[in-house]
Deep mutational scan, measured.
Amino acid sequence: EDAPSSDDLEQFAKQFKQRRIKLGFTQADVGLALGTLYGNVFSQTTICRFEALQLSFKNMCKLKPLLNKWLEETDSSS
């Protein structure tokens, strides 16, 4: 699987934040939901840093598919 470019990540982080707010979730909600869904709880700080593009590139790449999946799950259930 190709690693996303930093442009991709930036684009995704923006879209993710907009969708999250529109769906009415806090950063902490998302962190907990990831724990429920995938067994990895993320702190509010981590989600905040992801949205602000302040995580390392490697961590951004790791989180992106999880957050993407969460969006898909959340979209389909709302």
Rank of each mutant, 00 (worst) to 15 (best):
E73N: 09
E51N: 04
N59L: 10
F42V: 13
S56G: 08
Q15T: 10
L32R: 14
Y38P: 04
L23D: 06
R19K: 15
C61H: 06
D29A: 09
K22E: 11
Y38N: 12
E73A: 11
T46L: 07
S6L: 15
E51I: 01
L37V: 08
S76Y: 04
T36P: 07
L71Q: 04
Q15L: 08
L23W: 08
A28G: 10
E1L: 14
S78K: 14
F12I: 03
I21E: 12
G39H: 14
K17G: 04
Q11N: 12
A52D: 13
F42Q: 12
T36H: 06
D7P: 02
S6N: 15
C48W: 05
Q54F: 01
Q18D: 07
D2R: 15
T36Y: 05
R20P: 02
S56P: 14
L66D: 01
Q15M: 14
R20W: 00
E51A: 02
G31I: 05
S5T: 14
Q44K: 13
T45K: 13
G35D: 03
K62F: 07
R19F: 04
K62H: 12
L67E: 00
P65R: 08
N40W: 07
S56H: 02
D2L: 14
L23T: 02
C61G: 04
K62W: 04
Y38H: 12
L55N: 08
I21D: 03
E72N: 09
L34I: 03
D8P: 01
D29H: 08
A28W: 05
L55C: 11
T46G: 00
K58Q: 12
T26I: 00
Q54G: 07
L67R: 02
K64Q: 12
C61W: 09
S78E: 11
L55I: 00
A33L: 12
Q15P: 01
R49G: 03
L55Y: 04
F42T: 10
C61M: 11
D7N: 06
T45I: 03
G24S: 04
F12Q: 01
F50N: 00
P4I: 14
T45A: 11
L53I: 13
Y38A: 09
D7G: 11
S76N: 08
F50T: 01
R19P: 01
D8S: 05
P4Y: 15
S76E: 12
A52P: 00
V30L: 08
C48F: 13
D8N: 07
T45W: 04
F50E: 06
K22R: 11
N68Y: 09
S43V: 01
A52N: 15
G31E: 08
P4E: 11
F25K: 10
F50V: 03
R20E: 01
L71C: 02
S76W: 04
E1F: 14
N40I: 10
L53G: 13
Q11P: 06
T36N: 11
K14R: 08
A33N: 10
E72S: 08
F57K: 12
D75R: 10
S77Q: 14
K62T: 11
V41S: 13
K17E: 01
A33S: 10
L55D: 04
S76H: 08
K69Y: 09
K17T: 12
P4K: 10
L55P: 01
R19I: 08
A3D: 09
F16G: 03
V30G: 00
F25P: 00
S77G: 14
L55T: 01
K69R: 11
I47Q: 00
T26S: 10
S77F: 07
V41N: 14
L55V: 04
S77E: 12
T74M: 11
L63D: 06
S76G: 13
S43Q: 06
